[in-house]
Nucleic acid binder design. Sequence first.
DNA 1: TCTATATATCGAGAATTATAGATATATTGT
DNA 2: ACAATATATCTATAATTCTCGATATATAGA
Lengths: 100, 100
Amino acid sequence: MDLKLATEIGKCLSNNPRLQILEWLKEPEKNFPPHETLKHFNDGVCVTYIQEKAGLSQSTISTYLTNMEKCGLLIMTRHGKWSYFKRNEELLRQYAEFLL
Amino acid sequence: MDLKLATEIGKCLSNNPRLQILEWLKEPEKNFPPHETLKHFNDGVCVTYIQEKAGLSQSTISTYLTNMEKCGLLIMTRHGKWSYFKRNEELLRQYAEFLL
DNA sequence: TCTATATATCGAGAATTATAGATATATTGT
DNA sequence: ACAATATATCTATAATTCTCGATATATAGA
């Protein structure tokens, strides 16, 4: 973890909706409905559910999730036409360690 | 630690100079000269030394440090005409815990 | 292939942040 | 009280971020 990456992570964490999403994804099964097709939360939650819960536009949420994935905060898995996002706990631990 | 505070902390951590300052303050004695008047680093480092090392204007650094102090990331102690800033390790731990 | 659904990307205007210089305030020493 | 030094605050401009609607791409099913 270097300063540059840590700053990028900080940018993702500096905005209310993004931070809220990261919190929701701590417990997907408590915060989101079960997906009709996929029966588990192993790979997280699809964009539409996150978008609906956040109440922002589809493009905004898609951009947020993509950005968070680019700096490593989220891990994306594609299943058919859905993109699932889950937290990257390992990177979060590294970031927390960097701060302390 | 609630979402609102965590977002404010994230904002402080989302900018290179501020994050760098927080890193420098992990080891003040390695990153800053000893102060002429105060002989220890118990309360951190004065604004001028941080400003010189960061290479940004006095007003910018003063604003940054004040903002970081307001959200609790830094602790300020006034000694005569100098303001010393040090890390608030306790809040950093709480923030790290919030993220994980 | 055509249609519907899910997600991603593009382009733009509004809002916020970064940063500086000027000025104000606080403290110390003469 | 006055001068010097350290820090804080004010004001303004440039840069970045926020957020959206429009559009493009990808996938699945009829």
